[in-house]
Design a protein around this nucleic acid. Structure first.
Lengths: 152, 152
DNA sequence: CCTCGAAAGTTGAGGCTATCAAAGATTACG
DNA sequence: CGTAATCTTTGATAGCCTCAACTTTCGAGG
């Protein structure tokens, strides 16, 4: 009923591949986009908001968002226009600008984080045993790879 | 070391929320974007390519991609310009245009699907027992919700 | 001091994606 | 037939994104 990566056309050699094949259609739906829309910001703005739990340099934001620094300029401009963030000069280095959330920005960020943590139906509908098993597996997965999670 | 939704700032009331909180940083990294870039197409073009396992109407593509129909026009234009797809008239209804992959489009789609099915490191590095458990949980999750998975 | 190279951020050009409103073509129904 | 509904495209507008070029600032050496 819906476009999906057809498992039948996949290699499916090993269990890891099979598990991943099952996970993709469950997580690929653009939740991020939906949340951004719900909160009245664009997805890139939400991505930036998400980074700003603590003040960040423009350059660091670009690294984390995996985009060109010039791109961050426009996104932060938009956040400033809406009084969600503001640029401040860096004490030590006058080339650097530090972006910090305003009170309104903090509030919106809190709502965004809350939304992102709401588990989708397919997780909530799992049996308690499966939920625990899933959580434990993911803990082990997350523990061994301190792997980057930069998300835009 | 990387921007993440800080678990400490989450509600974490129940296990479902906790499991989801662990899953988000493992899956949010824009794999889709990376694959698109690797294959030399834009993400929306990859999304369209992904739908075209079988020929699709413009309108159906818009539904599946969750975007305005007028948007699909441009994306399909781009695919046609690159000889990855072509529009064909619909037999029964001359308003409708059916988009079909060319041979080159099929080849590129095959590569895309292959890439998408490569499990990320965190899945491959799980123990065989965890891999099986994860697969089984996801099978159950996918089975009970015949839920939409439209992805862009 | 003073110049030279590197770094941080911005600007401008060009392209792609997205939405909305409106138009064109075609079909379906009364 | 004629009117409404459907499928797609066009045009206007806005945002994101990358690249190359530029400004300001920092740091190291002469």
């Amino acid at each position: 009923m819906v476009p999906k990566v057809n498992p039948k056309s996949a290699p499916s050699e090993d269990i890891a591949t099979e598990a991943w094949g099952l996970l993709v259609p469950l997580v690929y739906p653009p939740r991020f986009i939906e949340i951004a829309h719900k909160l009245g910001v664009t997805p890139p703005q939400l991505g930036a908001l998400r980074l700003l739990e603590q003040p960040q340099t423009m350059g660091r934001m670009a690294e984390h968002l995996r985009c060109d620094p010039s791109n961050v300029t426009g996104i932060v401009d938009a956040l400033e226009d809406r009084d969600l963030a503001e640029r401040k000069p860096s004490a030590g280095d006058r080339r650097v600008k530090v972006v910090e959330l305003t009170a309104a920005g903090e509030r919106l960020r809190a709502r965004a984080v809350e939304e992102m943590f709401k588990p989708p139906a397919w997780v909530k509908d799992l049996s308690p045993a499966d939920q625990r098993a899933l959580r434990d597996i993911l803990r082990r997965a997350g523990a061994e790879g301190g792997r980057p999670t930069g998300a835009g």
